[in-house]
Amino acid sequence: MRIAVIQFPGTNCEHETLVAVKECGMDGEIFRWNRPEQELCEFDGYVIPGGFSYQDRVRAGVIASKEPVMATLREEAANGKPIIGICNGFQILVESGILPFGDGVRLALAQNVMIRGGEIVRRGYYCAWTMLRHDAEERRCSGSYILRRGEILSIPIAHAEGNLVSSDKKVIERLIEDDQIVFRYCSERGDIISEFPVNVNGSTENIAGICNPEGNVLGMMPHPERAFFAWQLPWKHPRVRGYGPGRIVFESMRRYIEERRL
């Protein structure tokens, strides 16, 4: 089972993402953007990691989304192979139109706007640990394949543009109807509260991650590779050996590939 971790100029999370892939028993390698894109077809799954591809020029993710490797990934997505885009990877998937419906750019990940009590209390970059509620059905999405609906994970975010918006209300309605909303920002008890700090970036419906209609492509703003080991967790968690909540995303990918093969 081989996973390609796609590296654009400006990507900066490829190494820890590859560690997560390998730790889950998958083979993997970092795939530089200017390698022949046909070589991508040999892989069983793909992760587009976080960073600032092409310096966020024009808009975060937009230049990378035009690279030949993304055209290949679109084909591989249509073949049902799993793709997980994390942070800038999510932005690239949205800009390439692979998410949400595979038919063009329907969403934007806009600048974070933190709102509390009807007032904007902060804007822009924010790095913090957040609580996520898994809102999709079990086995709905490649990157949350073995998570049950309603399970809660603690995973950090670090971005300036993760505020998911659409000018077309129907897009959000369709995401809800088709069970494409995979993760939502929630309180420690799992409640969806629309205000900061629970809704950490102002995202519509507290959306932190979505999948395509087929479920094989996942885009999420939080970084599961940074919550992969227990020692990476904040001070409140006991400092123990073993794994953290982010592992389940990569483990899900492996299980998804295994079951698809059967």
């Binding site: 999370c13 190494h15 820890e16 790095c127 670090a158 940074r226």
Partner: peptide, 8 residues
């Protein structure tokens, strides 16, 4: 404002 987590 600082990415305190990158590199994992």
């Amino acid at each position: 404002y600082y990415d305190t987590e990158v590199q994992g």
